[in-house]
């Protein structure tokens, strides 16, 4: 299995996260713990959008729509089928984990299928048009959910089992990042980069640009759906208005702030913005005004005017000199 070669750090990482997941909820204040969980979900969202917007260069503005689909499908499946199912003779967390895992896959797949349906026609468009069409699809998804009564419509669905924990959130984030990194190191990933750099040149050298754009879009949608499922099973309540344009925008600003095309940047910005959002909360309570979006938007404008490449540009952690020296010192 040459495909699996070199994946041992991932396995070790997952085991490590499993252990950490046992300790952290015991020692951490629940409020900080929830920030930690949201940061993890945002890492998955930002990394997956980075694949579409940053690495493939297709500016999508409808990521929240895919997140909504994943969240709703997973929550609906678990609530109607598996909520009270337990495996006989095994602790609860085994059955919970199993059904959560199942719903992550199902939610992600539903979002991916939708991503295919949305992506195939709209990826013929470029730039601004693509942005507005994906924004439109995101809104259509939200409006459709709003009009579906069996999943709560505008009232939302309460009472989703809280199965998401530290291990699942960071395990998913880790698998997402590793899989995207491995994809980018393959010839398929090179094709995605070629599409970003110059679509016409890529096509001339034999890259099937539409196919690769759709692939990136579908993978991005899959991970957004998985993140949505995690989100649903942490918040225990879903409402269509959670997945409006502002949500998509929040993910976009994570990608742009980190530097479009840098996975390191996406992860960094996801953590940074989640923490920033929470640290603005006391200010908001003090003044009764919501500064968050104003600060985000100003940040975006100033960033574009002064440092359009974001924090990291297209660089990764491994591209920095100090990281290489550090690695050498470790003898790796």
């Amino acid at each position: 299995m040459s495909v699996l070669k070199g994946l041992w750090p991932l396995g070790a990482g997952l085991v490590f996260l499993g252990l950490l997941g046992q300790i952290i909820p015991q020692v951490m204040n629940p409020y900080y713990f929830s920030i930690l969980i949201y940061a993890g979900i945002n890492i998955t969202l930002a990394s997956s959008l980075n694949l579409v917007n940053g690495l493939t260069g297709q500016f999508s503005m409808g990521h929240a729509g895919f997140m909504a689909v994943g969240g709703y499908v997973a929550a609906f499946m678990n609530m109607s089928l598996f909520m009270d199912v337990h495996f006989a003779g095994m602790p609860n967390y085994v059955s919970e984990g199993f059904f959560l895992f199942l719903s992550l896959i199902v939610g992600g797949t539903a979002a991916a299928i939708l991503g295919y349906v949305v992506g195939l026609p709209s990826l013929r468009l470029k730039g601004d048009y693509l942005a507005i069409v994906t924004l439109g699809f995101g809104e259509i998804i939200r409006v459709l959910i709003l009009n579906m009564d069996f999943i709560g419509g505008a009232r939302g669905i309460p009472g989703i089992p809280q199965w998401t924990n530290f291990f699942w959130v960071y395990g998913v984030a880790l698998v997402c990042i590793v899989s995207i990194n491995r994809l980018m190191d393959s010839s398929h990933g090179r094709a995605l980069l070629a599409v970003r750099e110059d679509e016409i040149a890529a096509e001339a050298t034999g890259v099937n640009t539409t196919k690769y754009k759709v692939i990136a879009f579908v993978i991005g949608a899959f991970w957004a759906g998985v993140a949505g499922a995690l989100f649903a099973h942490f918040l225990t309540y879903l409402n269509p208005s959670t997945f409006d344009f502002n949500r998509s925008f929040e993910i976009i600003i994570m990608v742009v702030l980190g530097g479009m095309g840098s996975m390191t940047g996406a992860v960094f910005a996801a953590i940074f913005l989640t923490v920033l959002r929470e640290s603005l909360r006391p200010l908001q309570e003090l003044t009764q005004l919501d500064f968050r979006m104003v600060i985000y938007s100003l940040m975006l404008i100033i960033l574009m005017l002064t440092r359009p490449n974001g924090f990291f540009g297209t660089k990764e952690l491994t591209d920095f000199g100090w990281f290489k020296r550090f690695k050498k010192k470790l003898g790796a």
């Binding site: 005004l289 500064f291 104003v294 975006l300 574009m304």
Partner: peptide, 24 residues
């Protein structure tokens, strides 16, 4: 003179700034 995508992001930023600035 910047790439189109940067201008697009700025435009979205200005829009949100006016909306939420207006809210304040």
């Amino acid at each position: 003179k910047s790439p189109r995508i940067n201008v697009l992001i700025t435009a979205v930023g200005v829009s949100l700034f006016l909306e939420f600035g207006g809210q304040l």
